[in-house]
Simulated scan of single mutants.
Amino acid sequence: MNDPDDTEDFGLRAFEDLKNTVQRSNKAYSDVAGKLPALAKQLEALDAKSTQAAQRVEDAAQAVTSYVNTDRRTLLITCGFGAIALVFCAAFLGDIKGSRTGYAQGFAEGQQETKKRDLLAEWAVSSPSGRMAYEMDRVGQIQAFGMCRIEGYKVRTDQKGTWCVSTSGNGLEWPLARP
């Protein structure tokens, strides 16, 4: 079944693959080994820079520590006044913002009220019902109708609301608005 030539060919191919792998490994090792001295120099340079930076940070920290130790009272007074100034500024800005917000809200509410009044005035001037209501108010009759204080009428309340109805039962009825 297995021919001796097939086994030899397989063995030769495996040996050839191994040889190629070893050659590639040797080449990669040579490439890396050639780069190692340059990388070592770069690392030494970076180490020197890091050491210098660390020394500068240490010197700055010692300067700050000596300043804080020698001038602690001045530092505390300065921080205290700074904190007080910040509180007053925050309160002032909050007051200004609150005033502006209140002004804007009041202005918006005033505009809405003005629009409602303009619509009501337009109705009173341009409709027959509005003109009649104006005339009735001018002679003092609107209050009597609105509160059901008219001779021959009384107030009746049921599940649907409050009504002004005729005492005789065959007159007009109208709903009363709540005051």
Rank of each mutant, 00 (worst) to 15 (best):
M1F: 10
M1I: 05
N2Q: 12
D3C: 03
P4K: 06
P4Y: 07
P4C: 05
T7K: 15
E8H: 06
D9V: 03
F10H: 08
G11E: 08
G11P: 00
L12T: 09
F15Q: 09
F15H: 10
F15M: 10
T21Q: 08
T21P: 01
V22S: 01
R24M: 11
S25Y: 13
A28S: 15
D31R: 09
V32R: 09
K35W: 01
P37W: 13
P37T: 14
A38K: 14
L39H: 02
Q42N: 12
Q42H: 06
Q42F: 02
L43M: 11
A45Q: 13
L46I: 07
L46G: 07
L46M: 08
D47T: 13
K49S: 05
Q52S: 13
E58M: 09
E58G: 11
A60N: 03
A61M: 08
A61L: 09
A61Y: 03
A63K: 15
T65F: 12
S66I: 02
S66V: 03
Y67L: 12
V68D: 10
N69P: 04
T70W: 01
T70L: 10
D71L: 04
R72S: 11
R73F: 04
T74H: 15
T74V: 15
F81C: 00
G82I: 02
I84F: 12
L86W: 03
C89G: 05
A91G: 14
F92A: 11
G98L: 08
S99K: 14
R100Y: 09
G102S: 14
A104W: 08
A104R: 12
Q105E: 15
F107V: 03
E109F: 09
G110L: 01
Q111N: 12
Q112R: 13
Q112K: 15
E113T: 04
T114W: 01
R117C: 00
R117F: 02
L119T: 03
L120A: 14
A121I: 10
A121T: 09
A121R: 05
W123A: 01
W123R: 00
A124Q: 08
S126M: 03
S126G: 05
P128D: 02
S129A: 03
S129K: 02
G130L: 07
R131F: 00
A133Y: 02
Y134L: 06
E135L: 12
E135N: 05
M136D: 05
D137V: 01
Q141K: 12
I142F: 10
A144M: 05
A144Q: 06
F145N: 04
G146P: 00
M147K: 14
M147D: 14
C148V: 04
C148T: 06
R149A: 14
I150E: 11
E151A: 15
G152P: 15
D158E: 12
Q159K: 09
Q159M: 03
K160H: 10
K160C: 02
K160N: 11
G161A: 06
G161T: 04
G161Y: 04
T162C: 11
T162P: 12
V165W: 06
G169S: 02
G171T: 08
E173R: 05
E173W: 00
W174Q: 05
